[in-house]
């Protein structure tokens, strides 16, 4: 029983990162993806922050949902509670990083406000509730989603960096060409559909 459960948790991680990529298949987290994907270095920075925030806030939100919202029949407050937890967590992390490390703050700090509005984070939290994951699965799912998001943004940054000297039609510069690249990436990731049978 333990063996299959571990496999299940791993499968959830893999599915969230690759086959049901939260950005390329579920469309969540696009704004920061399009804005911050110019260089691989910044992409790694933002990606790491997303994985971190996603995993921790999902765990916290899971606990709040299970031990506070359900027992008191307050499920209708789910959205508002989750988003406040995310916003508060990000604010807290920003304050702590600012205190603890100047270098880390200047590298990562600017990304944190961007993360509060990253729909992927709220989205992942809501998915884990809809799919009724256990705490362990939920953590695996969020970490996987974050990793998937990070993977997508790094790939995008890599491509855009390589394209730095290519000739792009004037109207497509910036957002336009990024969207087309995202479309092609999305098609590529569609090839993974059905790899993981979650039934």
């Amino acid at each position: 029983m333990n063996g299959t459960e571990t496999l299940g948790v791993f499968a959830i991680f893999f599915a969230a990162a690759i086959t049901n990529n939260i950005l390329l298949t579920m469309y969540l987290g696009m704004c920061s993806f399009l804005a911050v994907s110019r260089q691989v270095k910044t992409a790694i920075g933002l990606g790491t922050a997303v994985v971190f925030v996603m995993t921790f806030t999902s765990a916290i939100n899971w606990l709040i949902y299970e031990y506070l919202l359900i027992p008191f029949e307050l499920e209708y407050l789910t959205y508002i509670v989750f988003i406040i937890v995310i916003a508060a967590f990000v604010q807290l992390v920003e304050m702590i990083i600012e205190r603890v490390s100047e270098t880390l703050y200047s590298a990562l700090g600017i990304f944190l406000p961007l993360i509060t509005v990253n729909c992927a984070i709220l989205g992942a939290a809501l998915f884990m509730i809809i799919r009724k994951y256990t705490l362990l699965s939920a953590i695996s799912f969020s970490a996987g989603s974050g990793a998937g998001w990070m993977l997508a943004i790094i790939i995008m940054a890599g491509i855009r960096q390589k394209m730095g000297t290519s000739k792009v039609p004037k109207g497509l510069e910036g957002a336009g060409i990024t969207l087309i690249i995202a479309g092609i990436m999305s098609m590529a990731f569609m090839g993974f559909t059905g790899m993981m049978n979650l039934n």
Binding site: G171, L172, G176, L179, A182, G183, S186, M190
Partner: peptide, 23 residues
């Protein structure tokens, strides 16, 4: 069918931006 799925969305929006910005 691609239009109903994710890639179609990306492409359509790119085309829209292209037309607006370019023309």
């Amino acid at each position: 069918s691609i239009m109903v799925m994710a890639p179609g969305a990306f492409f359509m929006l790119a085309v829209f931006i292209w037309i607006v910005k370019g023309l």
